[in-house]
């Protein structure tokens, strides 16, 4: 019985990971395969030479945001109702986060690999934030934890409007995090007070994202460490 108790958080994490693999993971790979099939068709039938994988690199991380949000929001009340402590839940969700982020990194690296193998004319590969392994890892982590923070806020406020506003704020921080950098670092022409470009410069984004990831994890912890399980609505 003690062994069951000690291992149950890991079993739960693996169960969630398997679910995500069979749904979000599979859908992503199917989308990736379809994209390349369409590109292949275009290459064979027209003079099209491009690769749209660039967009996958930019927008696939939002899938992880959705996974973080959906799974935290649904898993927290179910886990507590099933007799887990909040600490056990955090441990389970941390393991699950690690697996989900690793899966995200693997998909991103696959996108990059395929691009470099088949589409990069100069052999230089994709050059943007999130293309190197470490950057990919940090980027996946910040997108996932932002979703988890939003899910935690929604769960804490029992999906009420106040929770929705705070969750929206967490996701907004993620989406618009480049803007403060521009305002702080950019040198504007004399006749311009300030200018904002979106998505903006990503030069210092990796260290900032690492810090932001820690902050999002703290939001999850502080939000749920003493959170009650809401009464059922009759």
């Amino acid at each position: 019985m003690t062994t069951v108790l000690a291992h149950r958080k890991y079993r739960l994490a693996l169960r969630w990971a398997a679910e995500v693999g069979k749904t979000f993971g599979l859908w992503t790979l199917i989308a990736f395969a379809v994209l390349h099939l369409v590109q292949l068709g275009l290459r064979l039938s027209t003079s099209f030479e491009g690769d749209m994988s660039f967009y996958l690199l930019r927008y696939l991380p939002f899938v992880l945001t959705a996974v973080g949000l959906v799974y935290l929001l649904k898993a927290f009340p179910l886990a507590i109702a099933a007799g887990l402590t909040r600490k056990e839940f955090f441990a389970a969700f941390a393991v699950f986060s690690g697996i989900a982020i690793a899966g995200g990194v693997a998909v991103m690296q696959l996108v990059k690999l395929v691009h470099n193998l088949f589409y990069s004319a100069d052999g230089g590969g994709l050059d943007l934030y999130g293309a190197t392994l470490l950057e990919t890892l940090i980027r996946m982590a910040v997108y996932f934890t932002a979703g988890a923070a939003a899910g935690a806020l929604l769960a804490r406020f029992d999906r009420r409007a106040s929770g929705g506003i705070l969750a929206g704020a967490a996701v907004s921080v993620l989406i618009f995090r480049t803007i403060p950098f521009q305002l702080l670092l950019a040198e504007f022409p004399e006749d311009v007070a300030f200018a904002v470009e979106y998505p903006g410069s990503e030069e210092l984004l990796a260290p900032f994202d690492a810090v932001l990831t820690v902050l999002f994890v703290l939001v999850v912890w502080l939000t749920l460490a003493r959170a009650p399980l809401p009464h059922k609505k009759g």
């Binding site: 108790l5 887990l84 600490k87 056990e88």
Partner: peptide, 10 residues
């Protein structure tokens, strides 16, 4: 936050 106890409460 007592796992051995809450795991045996339904």
């Amino acid at each position: 936050e007592n796992a051995p106890i809450v795991s045996r409460i339904a």
